[in-house]
């Protein structure tokens, strides 16, 4: 398949952190993204450190803080978890929206959150774009119809994860493990715009990996709406995650996060404000219209603006009584 590497089955999180500190080491979850990158010739790890061999790292459990989902929990197991779905419906929906049934049987939540972008210039080895340490973004004067309408470059990828926007909406915390120990942070802080770091969408120190995600149950109403070009399976062309609290006919608390339109999960504070100050039915129009405030489309992707509004409107309408 690719160039040779050394394969390690980590047995503990500490051992994984030590192995990942080796030069050229990369973590393996389901392998769906990593093997794809290796085949595309844009990644050639010298060491592959298997995290799925760590006992218990795939646990999905309810704690006094909400739900704790280990990094190697499979997307299928998240989508099929009846109790988790009761507490965090949007999270289960987002896991179910990922890719194909086979990929959900292999893909892990850690890998989904740390997957790399699908921009075709990034994925093609022959383009030395800014995300790969080269200069400029060939999409600016090239093919950009699926790329970002937010974020302002210098790289215009859209973040490919379905679970990330939902977990930002749910105010989840990520637990990271590294050679210097463990730390945790709000998942929104895990992601960085290209203006801060064009090379990578997330902040992991050398040797660090995602150990778990914790999701509070304080926002009991949530949903994830994904619009795709091909309905059987595809990455989002626009998506909307909403999490909040509903009292009668209105949201008392609401977080609106867009997917598929920006280099990171994109929170829309104006949509949230419009959602809170109206009844749900009356919020559909102002909240969905304001969700794209500040968007700056590229030469070929202004069509994503109405598409994004539609995703937000559909997400809000899903909370209306049927």
């Amino acid at each position: 398949m690719t160039s040779p590497f050394t394969f390690w089955d980590a047995r503990t999180a500490e051992e994984a952190a030590a192995l990942l500190s080796k030069k050229g080491a990369m973590a393996l979850g389901g392998g769906v993204d990593l093997l794809g990158e290796m085949k595309e010739g844009i990644r050639a790890p010298e060491h592959i450190v298997n995290l799925r061999s760590i006992p218990g790292l795939d646990k999905i459990q309810k704690t006094d803080r909400g739900w704790r989902v280990g990094a190697t929990a499979l997307l299928t197991d998240i989508a099929d978890h009846a109790d988790l779905r009761k507490d965090l419906p949007g999270f289960a929906e987002s896991a179910e929206a990922v890719a194909t049934p086979q990929i959900r049987n292999q893909g892990t939540i850690g890998g989904n959150l740390a997957q790399r972008p699908r921009c075709w210039y990034y994925r093609a080895a022959e383009f030395a774009c800014v995300k790969k340490g080269g200069k400029g973004c060939p999409a600016e004067k090239g093919e950009n119809r699926y790329l970002a309408i937010f974020g302002d470059g210098p790289c215009h990828i859209v973040h490919p994860s379905d679970c990330a926007p939902m977990l930002v909406a749910l105010d989840a915390r990520l637990f990271l493990r590294g050679p210097d120990g463990a730390r945790d942070l709000p998942i929104a802080d895990f992601y960085e715009l290209p203006s801060k770091n064009a090379l990578c969408e997330f902040t992991l120190k050398p040797g660090e990996f995602i150990e778990a995600v914790e999701i509070p149950t304080a926002l009991p109403r949530s949903t994830y709406v994904k619009i795709r070009e091909k309905d059987s399976f595809d990455f989002a062309i626009a998506a909307c995650a909403i999490a909040g609290k509903i009292d009668g006919d209105h949201f008392t608390d609401a977080r609106v996060v867009l997917g598929g339109v920006a280099p990171v999960p994109w929170r829309s504070v104006t949509a949230e404000a419009n959602l809170r100050k109206n009844t749900i039915a009356d919020a559909v129009e102002p909240a969905s219209n304001s969700a794209t405030d500040g968007a700056r489309p590229m030469s070929q992707n202004a069509w994503k603006i109405p598409m994004t509004k539609a995703a937000v409107a559909r997400a809000i309408r899903s909370f209306l009584p049927r």
């Binding site: 394969f7 393996l28 769906v32 093997l35 794809g36 299928t76 086979q102 990929i103 292999q106």
Partner: peptide
């Protein structure tokens, strides 16, 4: 369970 054998290292 169905998985994609092209995206799974045989060692796994």
């Amino acid at each position: 369970k169905p998985v994609l054998s092209c995206l799974m290292l045989a060692v796994e």
